[in-house]
Amino acid sequence: MSDQVELLLQVNGAARRVEAWPLERLLDVLRHGLGLKGTKEGCGEGECGSCVVIMDGKLVVSCLVPALEADGSSITTIEGLGGEAGLDSMQQAFVDEGAAQCGFCTPGMIMAANALCQGGRTMDHASIREGLAGNLCRCTGYMKILAAVRKAGGARP
């Protein structure tokens, strides 16, 4: 038995304090502790990618990150994209290309796609497929997702 610990996180640009069990999953800290339900749980075993977020600039599967290890880090979730002004260019491309069907994989897919496009690499379909290897989608067959990522990726500075 342990005690809960108080974590200090920067979440989507704002400082947040939250109590958690040290080995609690970052995913649960976000969803239960902070009420950020946009990050989804599809498997809890690191396999599906629905729970990925950006932690200190790196894409991580939040279901495998212990809460204590996230202490002091800066985290971006799907709720941190776009903002009042509207959708970010990746979200918009997902809408335009019909890349979201049931929408359950979508937040993770968009986070992973954004991380992939940050590097400013040339994005042919093969490299997008490789970059999204950790994100499973059961609805789309990935075609429209590739199209969206290519479109938004190409539009990035």
């Binding site: 038995m1 342990s2 069990w21 040290p22 080995l23 609690e24 999953r25 649960d28 204590l68 290890e69």
Partner: peptide
Amino acid sequence: MRANVSRYDLRAP
């Protein structure tokens, strides 16, 4: 989730 995380302890030295 098949475990009770409150029963586990983690320290980060």
